Amino acid sequence: MTPDLSAAAWRKSSYSEGGDNNCVEVADGYPGVVPVRDSKAPQGPALVFGAEPWAVFLATAKGEVR
């Protein structure tokens, strides 16, 4: 089931450096899932990932998993 994201508080990556909205945004406060959207299209669709797969993705992106 997709959570209601109408009141989501979105935040950009700390690595975005305030660039031209070419960022991924995530919303906190949704137990067990991580909503993700494209900052260039805030009214567009959001993807919702399980918290564990999202953590593995981030660790891999940081080079912590080989």
Rank of each mutant, 00 (worst) to 15 (best):
Ser39Leu: 04
Ala55Trp: 06
Ala46Pro: 15
Thr2Arg: 15
Phe49His: 12
Ala51Gly: 02
Val36Trp: 06
Arg11Asn: 08
Asp38Gly: 12
Gly44Ile: 00
Arg37Cys: 00
Ser6Glu: 08
Asp38Trp: 09
Trp54Gln: 00
Ala46Asp: 09
Trp10Cys: 10
Asn22Trp: 06
Ala8Arg: 09
Arg66Pro: 12
Pro53Lys: 04
Cys23Gln: 02
Lys62Arg: 15
Ser13His: 02
Glu25Gln: 12
Asn21Lys: 11
Val48His: 09
Val33Gly: 00
Val36Arg: 03
Thr2Glu: 13
Lys40Val: 12
Gly63Pro: 06
Trp10Asn: 07
Lys62Glu: 14
Ala8Trp: 09
Ala51Val: 04
Glu17Asn: 13
Leu58Ser: 10
Lys40Asn: 15
Ser13Phe: 06
Thr2Ser: 12
Ser13Gln: 02
Asp28Trp: 08
Tyr15Lys: 10
Arg66Cys: 13
Ala59Ile: 09
Ala8Phe: 09
Trp10Val: 07
Gly44Leu: 01
Tyr30Ile: 07
Ser16Met: 11
Phe49Trp: 13
Trp54Asn: 00
Ala9Leu: 14
Val48Cys: 08
Ser6Phe: 07
Val56His: 07
Trp54Arg: 02
Ser6Pro: 10
Val56Asp: 01
Ser14Val: 05
Val48Thr: 10
Phe49Thr: 05
Gly18Phe: 11
Pro35Asp: 04
Thr60Asn: 08
Asp20Cys: 13
Pro31Lys: 08
Arg37Lys: 11
Ser16Glu: 07
Ala27Lys: 07
Gly63Thr: 09
Arg66Ser: 11
Lys62Ala: 15
Gly50Asn: 05
Ser14Leu: 01
Asp4Arg: 10
Ala9Trp: 09
Gly44Val: 01
Gly44Ser: 04
Ser39Arg: 08
Tyr30His: 15
Ala7Trp: 07
Glu52Val: 12
Ala51Ser: 10
Gly63Tyr: 05
Phe49Met: 08
Leu47Pro: 06
Ala51Cys: 01
Tyr15Leu: 08
Ala55Gly: 13
Val65Glu: 09
Asp38Phe: 08
Asp28Pro: 05
Val56Thr: 11
Ala51Glu: 02
Phe57Arg: 01
Ser16Lys: 06
Ala8Ile: 10
Thr2Met: 14
Ala59Trp: 12
Val34Gln: 00
Ala41Arg: 15
Ala8Cys: 10
Pro31Phe: 03
Val24Gly: 00
Asp4Tyr: 03
Arg37Val: 00
Leu47Trp: 11
